[in-house]
């Protein structure tokens, strides 16, 4: 069976999974504020180090938590490459190829790395969030914030059916390949292009499933009463308050320093 990030939260093997979901949301928001406030390498490096420390202290599974980074590495590579080739200042080398000048910018390269670090920061904090937060508890926490249950529950519903949709996609892919449709191209762009037609049956299957799920939800009294109860409970402890204070304070300091031009 495929393991997903939230599996760790469901298995409940760390103190971090007992944190209030809104604490994790606050930490994620704080990191996002820091990442978008500055491109200062020291600040972003310190924030990344803090996140890695959180992972180590919380005994989060390093491999599965950092695995999604593999997906963003090509994006990071292209960002850095474009910045290196396109920046007009700080040029350290240049060639003329077919009448066109190609330049290498040290400033662009550093900027590319900074943007990469920003993307990595956002990706790491998001994967930590999904690793640590129990979806049902997150739904409860959202309802406590007066978000209507039917919207709050869509988060859990989406996570539940993600594996199923991936299975459906694999089935469609196998069915098409068994009839000679060639998907496994070495060229990643061509591969994406070839998978695209498989989305049509996938969407049709999803629509059919959605109508059955709507029926099944109603048969289980979905939306029967406004005073719905919850089996799971979420509580705020001193650690929650401390982590929220640290996260928000750090975000506020970085934001002020960035506005003031100190970093």
């Amino acid at each position: 069976m495929a393991r997903f990030l939230y599996t760790f939260a469901l298995e409940d093997r760390s103190w971090a999974t007992h944190l209030h979901p809104m604490t994790m949301a606050t930490l994620a928001l704080s990191v996002a504020i820091i990442a978008f406030s500055t491109l200062h390498l020291g600040v972003m490096g310190a924030t990344l180090a803090a996140l890695l420390l959180f992972m180590a202290v919380g005994r989060l599974p390093t491999r599965s938590t950092l695995a999604p980074l593999v997906l963003i590495l090509p994006l990071c590579f292209f960002i850095t490459l474009i910045q290196t080739l396109a920046r007009p200042e700080g040029i350290v080398a240049s060639w003329s190829v077919a009448g066109r000048e190609i330049t290498i910018s040290a400033v662009g390269f550093i900027l590319g790395l900074r943007i990469t670090l920003r993307v990595v920061l956002l990706a790491v904090v998001l994967t930590i969030f999904f690793t640590v937060v129990h979806p049902a508890k997150f739904t409860k926490a959202l309802c406590d914030l007066r978000v209507p249950f039917k919207y709050a529950y869509s988060f859990t519903l989406a996570l539940r059916f993600l594996p199923l949709m991936l299975e459906e996609l694999a089935t469609i892919k196998n069915a098409q390949q068994s009839r000679g449709y060639d998907i496994d191209q070495r060229n990643p762009f061509l591969r994406v292009f070839r998978i695209f037609p498989l989305m049509v049956p996938l969407v049709l299957i999803a629509l059919r499933r959605a109508s059955t799920i709507a029926l099944a939800l109603d048969l289980r009294a979905f939306g029967a009463r406004p005073d719905r109860t919850f089996f799971v409970d979420v509580k705020r402890g001193p650690l929650d308050l401390g982590l929220r204070a640290v996260g928000l304070s750090a975000a506020a300091v970085v934001l002020i320093a960035a506005i003031a031009g100190w970093i």
Partner: peptide, 15 residues
């Protein structure tokens, strides 16, 4: 609809 067996069994009762 839920991620765990427990969540599924209590879902209707919660509603």
């Amino acid at each position: 609809f839920n991620l765990t067996l427990e969540g599924d069994v209590v879902f209707g009762m919660e509603n």
